[in-house]
């Protein structure tokens, strides 16, 4: 039952700018919640409102990007606090993979725990991909974890970078502790069957 992640296929969202922090991703007032579920609605809420008041449209409000699952960012994305709410909010919005020039370390780790791969590209490539998306928002891309490339159809656009051990965790599904634990389901049942108190219950 390990959730192996080898490919993410979908349209993309370009989000330009360096040092976009976790407070911008999900403003602190949305942290008081029963479930992480609602966070998707509030992702980038303040940034989106600000863009609106200036008469422009934030990429997360752009009707053509609405179904985007691949987020393309620039430098030091996700800096700030350690809260899991930021990647949770992005994931709940529908983001399944993030391509960027670099990521804040804790944010990267939190994304890994949620099964959202963060892949690095060079500055030029990031800009190139963002432009491609803007030119044709409906285009489908493939983030291929097995050969670490970004593809459009069968054409490779550029290589993607990710540490080998992290790549392995996504490909094998071991990024997910729950998955590792679930793998031992027959052993779990064995232990359960020999625990005396379970048979009296």
């Amino acid at each position: 039952m390990l959730m192996k992640i080898d490919k993410i296929i979908g349209s993309a969202i370009p989000l330009k700018g360096n040092d976009i922090d976790t407070d911008r991703i999900i403003p602190a007032r949305f942290l008081k919640c029963v479930v992480f579920d609602g966070l998707g609605h509030h992702v980038f809420e303040d940034d989106r409102r600000e863009e609106k008041s200036r008469g422009s449209v934030h990429p997360f409000d752009h009707p053509e990007y609405k179904k985007g699952t691949i987020l393309v960012v620039n430098n030091n994305f996700g800096c700030g606090s350690s809260r899991e709410h930021a990647p949770q909010a992005l994931k709940r919005f529908g983001i399944k993979a993030i391509i960027g020039e670099s990521f804040a370390e804790i944010f990267f780790g939190n994304c890994l725990a949620l099964g959202v791969p963060c892949l690095r590209v060079g500055e030029k490539e990031a800009a190139l991909i963002q432009t491609m998306i803007e030119e044709k928002p409906s285009e489908q891309y493939t983030v291929d974890i097995s050969d670490l490339t970004l593809k459009k159809g069968k054409d490779v656009i550029c290589p993607l970078f990710m540490q080998g051990t992290v790549q392995e965790q996504f490909l094998s599904g071991t990024w997910d502790v729950t998955g590792i634990l679930l793998e031992n389901q027959s052993l779990i049942k064995q232990v359960a069957s020999r625990l005396p108190y379970l048979n009296w219950a």
């Binding site: 725990a113 502790v177 590792i180 634990l181 679930l182 031992n184 389901q185 779990i188």
Partner: peptide
């Protein structure tokens, strides 16, 4: 909370 999830799903934890 993440371990609660693990125990719900597998009745085990690490």
């Amino acid at each position: 909370t993440s371990q609660i999830r693990d125990v719900l799903a597998t009745q085990t934890l690490s």
